[in-house]
């Protein structure tokens, strides 16, 4: 397969997919929470653009609907909710320096190569386009998971989770021309509910440990440890 022989719309899809992957890297390394949310919104918009392009190319009408849905949900609504959440939690200026940023990036690069290696034997010659897109989507999913591993901040972890979902959606749209509308609606609803639940949880977590640093959650074990034994008595100690 050479790129020059593909129709222009497919080239465009590949370009957008590459940008989605780039935004995954940006999300991974972005120290400022607000900027990370913006990157996530852009990623959502790009996924919506991919959906739209596939819809135009394949003349599949229900994809127009899911493009609009994606744009509304992933690029507008969820980022807005996250934005509001960070404001209410007082985290607008929060930055979180990764301990080993270069290492995280290198790990993500390895994940990209790994996902490419994984899908290489998957499809025959003629479907190289699909396979390459799936490689990128898988990479986006894995980087999302990696982000949840390396980030300490709970909001950033949610971003990782949401970008995983973006990767899945990218694969579904570009490889199989979209899922049935019912499934898509269901997933969209799930994501929304998850977002709301996360919001509630954040307040709960912060109430109890006065921080959104998930590394502190491991102190909440129910062992004989005197600190963890009585969560109500320890908030002061832990927060210091």
């Amino acid at each position: 397969m050479t790129l020059a022989l593909l129709p222009l719309l497919q080239q465009f899809v590949l370009l957008l997919a590459a940008l989605v992957m780039f935004l995954s890297f940006v999300l991974l390394a972005q120290a400022r929470l607000i900027s990370a949310i913006h990157s996530f919104a852009w990623q959502g918009a790009l996924v919506a653009a991919v959906t739209l392009t596939v819809a135009v190319a394949g003349e599949t009408h229900h994809l127009y609907f899911s493009a609009i849905l994606t744009l509304a949900l992933k690029a507008l609504l969820i980022p807005w909710m996250l934005h509001r959440l960070t404001r209410r939690l007082g985290l607008e200026r929060h930055t979180e320096d990764l301990h080993w940023p270069t290492l995280a990036i290198m790990a993500a690069v390895v994940l990209v190569i790994f996902s490419y290696w994984l899908v290489t034997p998957m499809v025959a010659q003629g479907l190289a386009f699909t396979r390459n897109i799936i490689a990128v989507s898988l990479a986006v999913v894995l980087i999302g998971l990696l982000m949840m591993v390396v980030r300490q901040q709970a909001v950033a972890q949610v971003l990782g989770f949401m970008s995983m979902e973006n990767g899945l959606f990218l694969a579904a749209v570009s490889a199989t021309a979209g899922m049935p509308l019912v499934v898509e609606l269901g997933v969209a609803f799930d994501v929304l509910v998850a977002m709301v639940l996360f919001g509630v949880f954040f307040f709960q977590i912060r109430e109890s440990i006065d921080s959104l640093d998930v590394d502190r959650l491991n102190r909440l074990t129910e062992t004989a440890d005197p600190v963890g034994a009585n969560p109500f008595a320890t908030t002061d100690e832990v927060s210091q």
Partner: peptide, 12 residues
């Protein structure tokens, strides 16, 4: 990423 996307997306 340019190198990787060349290898992954453009060669097949």
């Amino acid at each position: 990423l340019g190198l990787l996307s060349h290898v992954i997306l453009e060669i097949g």
